[in-house]
Nucleic acid binder design. Structure first.
Lengths: 230, 230
DNA sequence: AGAGAAAACGAGCGCTCGCTCGATTTTTGA
DNA sequence: TCAAAAATCGAGCGAGCGCTCGTTTTCTCT
C-alpha cells in the first residue's frame, strides 16, 4: 500500500467497490440480476443506511426513511435484502473482511523490523478507517445490538486485530528491541488509541487535527511505551 | 478519596445514593411525594433500565419490558418521569455531575507534583467507572442517539475531563517535568485508554485482568509518553 | 413494434411502541 | 375507624414499525 498515491485507496474503498464485494457475498439474497444495476442501487441503499444510522442509530432508522433517502420504494429495498438484519450483516461483513485483508498485507522487510512493522500497522489502520469512516463508525456503534452471530463476528474481528499487535510486540521483546511488561494488555490498549480517530471524529474535525498529526501522536505514544527507556 | 477503604466508595455510589441525588434534581417531574418510596422505586426503575439497555440498547428497551423488570406497572412508571427521554437524561445527568465532582477533588499537595496528580487522576477515573460501571456504559453507548441538548451535555462533559488532563500536562511542561509535543492531542488520547476498561469490560473479565493491573498499564503508558526520554 | 421478463412500486397487514386516564388499592391522620 | 389523599394499576389509544404482494413501469430482444 502506497499512501502517497491516495487515488488507489479512494478507488479501492469507494462505496461502489465495496458494494460490488458485498454483492458477490450475497448473490443469493439479492434478487436483482444485472450486476451494474444491483451494485448501483446497493450503493445508494448502503450510503443512506450509513448516513442515517450514524446520526440516529440503525434501530431508529426505519425502512421508510431508508426508502426515501435512497430513492427506492419500500418494496424495492426488499429486492436487495430479505430483512433488515441482513442489511446490517452486509455492512459488518464487509468491514471485518476488509480490515483483516488489509492489515495482513504488511510490506516485505518488516519481518526483522518490529518497530517498522508496528508503525506501518498504526498508519495503515488509521488510514483505512479514514477511507471507510462511516463503515467503521457503523460497525463500532451498532456492535452492541447485533444478534449473537454477528456479535461474535465483531468480537472475533477485534481479537484478530489485537493478536496482530501482540505478535509484533512478542517478536520485538524476543529480539530485545522492545521492553513490555504485559504484552496482551499493552496490545489491547493500542486498539482504543486507533479507534478514537473515527469514534470521536467530530471532535478532531472541530480542532482541525489532520490524519498525519493523529498518526504521529499515536505512533509516538506506542513507541514510548514499547521501546526500552534509557 | 481513599482507595483502601472501598466501603465508602460502594456506599457513595450505590444505586440508592445516586437515585437520591437524581430525585433532588428532578423533584418537579417525579409525582411521588414520600422520598423513601420515590428513591426506592427510582432505584428499581433505573437498575432495570441500565440492565436492559446495556444488553439491547435504550431505544430497543420498551416501557413494558421496563415495567416488568422493575415490578411497577406502565402507569406506575409515569409517576417517576413524564416521558422516556426524561429517564435518559436522569441517568446521563447523574453520570456527568458525578464525574466532574469526583475528578476535581484532587488531594492536597498535587499542585507542584504533576506526575502525582496525573497518576491520581488515572486511578480515580478508572475506580469511579468501575464503581458505576453500568452507568458509564449506558452514557457512552447511548450518547450518539441523545437528543441535541443531552448530546451537548455529554460532549461538554467529555471536553471538561479532557481539559483537566490538558491543564496538568501544561503545568508539567511549564515546570520542565514533562516533555509533550502536542498537549491537546495527547490529553485527548488519554481518555480512550481510560474508557476501554468499561467499554470492553467483557473482554477484560474474560482474561481476568484486575483493576489494579489495568490502572498500572495505563499509568505506565501515560508516564512513558509525558516524561522526557533520557 | 410488441411480447415477455425484470425491476420497481406503494397501499395495506399484523404488531408493538410510547403514553393516557378512569378505576382500584394503599396510606394517612383526626 | 373511616373518609380523603396518595400511589398504583393496566386496558386501550393513535402512530409508526417491518414486511408483503398484486400491480405498474421499464428494459430486452427479435
Amino acid at each position: 500500500m502506497n499512501f502517497a498515491g491516495q487515488r488507489q485507496w479512494t478507488a479501492a474503498f469507494s462505496t461502489e467497490a465495496l458494494c460490488a464485494r458485498i454483492l458477490d457475498r450475497h448473490r443469493d439474497t439479492v434478487r436483482v440480476q444485472k450486476p451494474h444495476v444491483a451494485v448501483a442501487n446497493l450503493a445508494r441503499i448502503i450510503e443512506a443506511t450509513l448516513k442515517l444510522s450514524n446520526k440516529q442509530g440503525f434501530h431508529a432508522t426505519s425502512l421508510r426513511d431508508l426508502a426515501q433517502a435512497s430513492g427506492l420504494s419500500m418494496g424495492g429495498l426488499y429486492s436487495y435484502f430479505d430483512n433488515k438484519r441482513t442489511l446490517l450483516s452486509m455492512i459488518l461483513g464487509e468491514v471485518s473482511t476488509t480490515v483483516s485483508e488489509v492489515l495482513r498485507a504488511a510490506p516485505e522487510g518488516t519481518a526483522d523490523d518490529p518497530l517498522g512493522h508496528l508503525k506501518w500497522l498504526i498508519e495503515t489502520h488509521i488510514r483505512l478507517t479514514e477511507a471507510m469512516q462511516p463503515w467503521f463508525v457503523f460497525a463500532y456503534m451498532e456492535a452492541k445490538s447485533f444478534p449473537a452471530a454477528e456479535r461474535r463476528m465483531a468480537v472475533d474481528s477485534e481479537a484478530a486485530t489485537e493478536e496482530i499487535f501482540a505478535a509484533i510486540l512478542r517478536q520485538g521483546v524476543a529480539s530485545g528491541k522492545f521492553a513490555v511488561a504485559d504484552i496482551e494488555l499493552t496490545a489491547s490498549l493500542i486498539k482504543p488509541l486507533l479507534q478514537d480517530w473515527y469514534v470521536k471524529r467530530a471532535k478532531y474535525r472541530k480542532r482541525s487535527t489532520s490524519v498525519e498529526q493523529y498518526i504521529d501522536a499515536v505512533t509516538e505514544i506506542v513507541a514510548a511505551t514499547v521501546l526500552p527507556r534509557g
